[in-house]
């Protein structure tokens, strides 16, 4: 089901929705999460551009592209079909695959913040009503909310997955600007240079069955666990 106004935008259909929902000004609170990265900086394991680039590349391949993007793609497909039961299943599996307290809470909190606006934009869509039922218990992951909303806005799965991964990487790189710190020019150069990797992981994610999704990032998980007890921190996760 597509909402009124779906596919708006001169040039690429839906470009306005894409820029709005994936843009840094959409109120999700993602800027207050580092997803474990802050621990690496605190422990002096990531101190400069080269080390940060290695971290960003691994995070892109293992987490954004390897784990989350296949879920975004699956949610988009189920939203197109109007299959709310499968959307619920995807959301439950993604929550179960988050193996630390902070990564679970971060995903649910940003999902809730995203839905606060998105639900008001598509109040009659059954897919959105389904998410609102899940919102308080067990919670809606950001990836689930993003996939459903952008599909309702008329975007296809390839665009939604690309926007999700790119905005996630951009958010991480902003953490690098604050924590390492990187200069804004260096950060934008890095983001620009990583576009090919983003394309690669998105292409792979669209073809990945959820039964093949791997969430094996033990050292990142440990960083996330240790973040709970860091003596001082700028980020919630």
């Amino acid at each position: 089901m597509k909402a009124d106004g779906a596919g708006r935008g001169f040039g690429h259909p839906g470009i306005c929705s894409l820029l709005q929902f994936a843009g840094g000004t959409f109120p999700t609170g993602a800027f207050s999460h580092s997803f474990g990265f802050e621990t690496y900086v605190y422990e002096n394991a990531v101190c400069d551009l080269a080390e940060f680039q290695a971290f960003a590349d691994s995070y892109l391949r293992s987490v954004l592209g390897g784990t989350e993007a296949p879920f975004v793609a699956a949610v988009c497909r189920h939203a197109v079909d109007g299959n709310t039961e499968r959307i619920r299943e995807c959301n439950e599996l993604l929550t179960a695959m988050r193996l630390t307290k902070e990564s679970r809470e971060a995903s649910i909190k940003t999902g809730k913040a995203f839905l606060r606006v998105a639900a008001a934009l598509f109040p009659d869509a059954p897919e959105m009503k389904c998410l609102l039922e899940l919102q308080d218990c067990p919670g809606v992951n950001y990836a689930t909310a993003f996939g459903v909303t952008l599909t309702l806005a008329g975007l296809d799965a390839a665009d939604v997955v690309s926007a999700y991964v790119f905005s996630g990487l951009s958010s991480l790189i902003q953490c690098g600007v604050k924590l390492i710190p990187l200069g804004n020019t260096e950060a934008q150069f890095l983001l620009f240079r990583m576009q090919d990797q983003v394309t690669d992981v998105c292409a792979a994610a669209l073809l990945t069955d959820l039964s093949d999704v791997c969430n094996f990032t033990p050292c990142l998980d440990i960083a996330s666990v240790k973040h709970e007890d860091l003596p001082s921190r700028l980020y919630i996760s």
Binding site: S62, E92, C214
Partner: peptide, 30 residues
Amino acid sequence: GRLIVCEHILVEPGEKTLTRICVMESYLTS
């Protein structure tokens, strides 16, 4: 009846993904 944990380790060491930061880094066992 509700899924609360799902851990999926899928490694093909030939791809050299294991030694990356965030994954096994320099560690041998987990």
